[in-house]
Design a protein around this nucleic acid. Structure first.
Length: 565
RNA sequence: CGGGGCGUAGCGCAGGUGGCUAGCGCGUCUGUUUUGGGAGCAGAAGGUCGCAGGUUCAAGUCCUGCCGCCCCGACCA
């Protein structure tokens, strides 16, 4: 490709709207342009990268027996009502205004299951792996970080259809391995975490992550290899437990203690002896939740404990009405009215606790959860903290921010039952198809790669995702016939050898070409200038480390082929 | 949805306490000199100052409403 005729609008200055590095570089290198919040165009150079990723996805999905579909973005609302996801998705789903009964699909479990219902009839038709690489629409309240969180984006989504749970395990494993290959081939440093299934439903799920401050997910990782999304991460922190003796409950004044930290500072309590109390409204009923000390309540875990996501923290007025006290003085003992109380597992059956007295300015001490109150259940509700021992081998947990690249789910029969996708087994019994669902955010692969592979000058591509293999730079090309002819020869030769060459044949100064080449970041630059040509040689610069070598034209091709791999 | 910031030439920004022809840098175009790390000189083009309404002799500037974009939070399969 000749740069003089190719549309690569590079930017010298940093675009004001971009704060994360991958976003800045994708704009500056002319890969993408923004059209509106969370909506981007891919320019020719970016689209080449996108297609490289898509080819890798396609190869690895085909390798596990995946069959490629292309499903519609426009979906009948009705099919989404059958699975209850019109409500579950809420505002995330776009609804078509001037044609009743149509939505824009944010994912495709429903459509896949619809086709399975149409045509999968017997166990002989299974298993199947169906996938597509297609545009998804999600009405994100706040798109951000360039291509990392968009309202329209490309997803590789696949779905496994099996006759048994063992079959699902097999399909899931195939995807797990395919995903490892995909991200490795893309050149990403990634890790896998256990994750919450959330509103997707299903039993097991894992996420493929890269560590990045630009990410929105938080993960707990440890040297033992333990890795989990913070939403489900646990630690082997010992429970608070019971002391041998615990005197009667005693009220004491705490006029200046509004927080757990205040109590620790002013009275010297140990965090382990404090029980923080928070109040939530669950489907319009209040519930009291006891947490150890300053432990943070994890709402994903709360959702699992309660079996519903219809809850919210009580507001100050409700707090007072329910407990008779304001924030900072609420506790499980001496409540105005009977309220369901649940507690974090660390507090299970513990005693000698300090908590609010449900009277402003007072706390109780010596609370025994077995003796002085009624706990309806102990659940893991806390968010793990940095440094806690991991559950695998007690190695210290590190909390990191991460970008979610892919997510694999064992769905089970949620969708097949709702839509009626059944098959007849060997015994002639009708059973629901057992499903899995597996997604990869295609743009996120590219942004993540750039997050991991850049320097102050620009992107540093590796061969698999690089938009071109070679960046051929002619110095002073407009004036030097010698240089132009040498460039033309090199360009034609390498192109004939199926190498992808971006040839900077513009009438620009050397500096402009060098800066653009570093910004765009193609792995190998061939720099052709008069001086070197006189000794029948050219310069090669490797983008990854800036190394330059002078090489004779005869050796050029072999040197490149050796170094491109 | 709550909080904050911003919207002026293709890009990055100044002007903002009302006042003359709306500026600067980069980029673009023409000419010329230059030519291995974002060239010099000379000239030129390019603007509904986000939109609508209002106040005023006069609005980029003040007021009201709206729209858009970014950031923090909430939310997020």
């Amino acid at each position: 490709m000749r740069l003089s005729q190719y549309f690569i609008p590079t930017l010298k200055e940093f675009p004001a709207e971009a704060t994360v590095i991958s976003h800045q570089l994708m704009l500056r290198a002319g890969l993408i342009r923004q059209v509106s919040a969370g909506v981007f165009s891919w320019l020719p150079l970016g689209f080449r990268v996108l297609n490289k990723v898509i080819n890798i996805l396609r190869e690895e999905m085909n390798a596990i027996g995946g069959q490629e579909f292309l499903l519609p973005a426009l979906n009948p609302t009705e099919i989404w009502e059958q699975t209850g996801r019109v409500e579950a998705m809420g505002d995330v789903m776009f609804h078509i205004k001037n044609r009743d009964g149509l939505v824009l699909a944010p994912t495709h479990e429903e459509i896949i299951t619809f086709h399975a219902r149409q045509h999968i009839q017997s166990y002989k038709d299974l298993p199947q792996i169906w996938y597509q690489i297609q545009t998804k629409f999600r009405n994100e309240p706040r798109p951000k970080s360039g291509v990392l969180r968009c309202r329209q984006f490309i997803m590789k989504d696949s779905y496994s259809l099996d006759t048994s749970w063992e079959g699902l395990d097999e399909s899931y494993k195939k995807h797990f391995e395919a995903y490892n290959k995909i991200f490795s081939r893309c050149g990403l440093k990634f890790f896998v975490v256990g994750a919450s299934s959330g509103a997707m439903g299903g039993s097991k799920s894992e996420e493929f992550m890269i560590e990045s401050d630009a990410g929105e997910d938080v993960c707990a990782i440890a040297p033992s290899g333990y890795a989990a999304n913070i939403e489900i991460a646990t630690s082997s922190l010992p429970p608070v437990g019971r002391k041998p003796a615990c005197p009667e409950v005693e009220k004491f004044p705490t006029p200046n203690a509004k927080t757990i930290d205040d109590l620790i500072e002013q009275y010297g309590f140990d965090e382990n002896s404090l029980a923080k109390t928070v109040v939530y409204i669950v489907e319009s009923k209040p519930i009291l939740i006891l947490m150890r000390g300053n432990d943070e309540l994890n709402e994903t875990k709360l959702q699992m404990a309660l079996g519903t996501n219809k809850f919210r923290p009580a507001n100050p007025e409700e707090l007072f009405e329910i407990t008779g006290a304001n924030t900072g003085s609420i506790g499980p003992v001496n409540l105005k009215q009977p309220i369901k109380i649940i507690a974090d597992k660390l507090l299970e059956a513990s005693n000698c606790l300090v908590s609010g007295a449900n009277q402003d300015g007072y706390h109780f001490r010596n609370i025994d959860l077995l003796r002085d109150t009624q706990i309806d259940g102990y659940y893991d509700l806390r968010t793990v903290r940095e440094g806690e021992p991991c559950p695998l081998a007690n190695t210290p947990i590190k909390i990191v921010k991460a970008i979610e690249l892919g997510h694999i789910f064992k769905l089970g029969t949620k969708y097949s039952e709702a839509i009626g996708a059944k098959f007849l087994d060997k015994d002639g019994l009708e059973k629901p198809i057992i499903m899995g669902s597996y997604g990869i955010g295609v743009e996120r692969i590219i942004a993540s790669f750039i997050e991991q592979n850049h320097d102050e000058f620009g992107i540093i591509w590796k061969k698999p995702l690089a938009p071109f293999d070679i960046h051929l730079i002619g110095i002073n090309i407009a004036k030097s016939d010698l240089v132009r002819q040498a460039c033309e020869d090199i360009y034609n030769n390498l192109t004939r050898k199926k190498l992808e060459v971006l040839y900077d044949d513009r009438d620009e100064t050397a500096g402009v070409k060098f800066y653009d080449a570093d910004l765009i970041g193609i792995p190998i630059q061939i720099i052709v200038g008069e001086k070197n040509l006189q000794s029948n040689s050219v310069e090669i610069k490797y983008r990854k480390d800036g190394r330059r070598t002078i090489i004779s034209l005869d050796e050029l091709e072999n040197t490149i082929l050796e170094n491109l791999l």
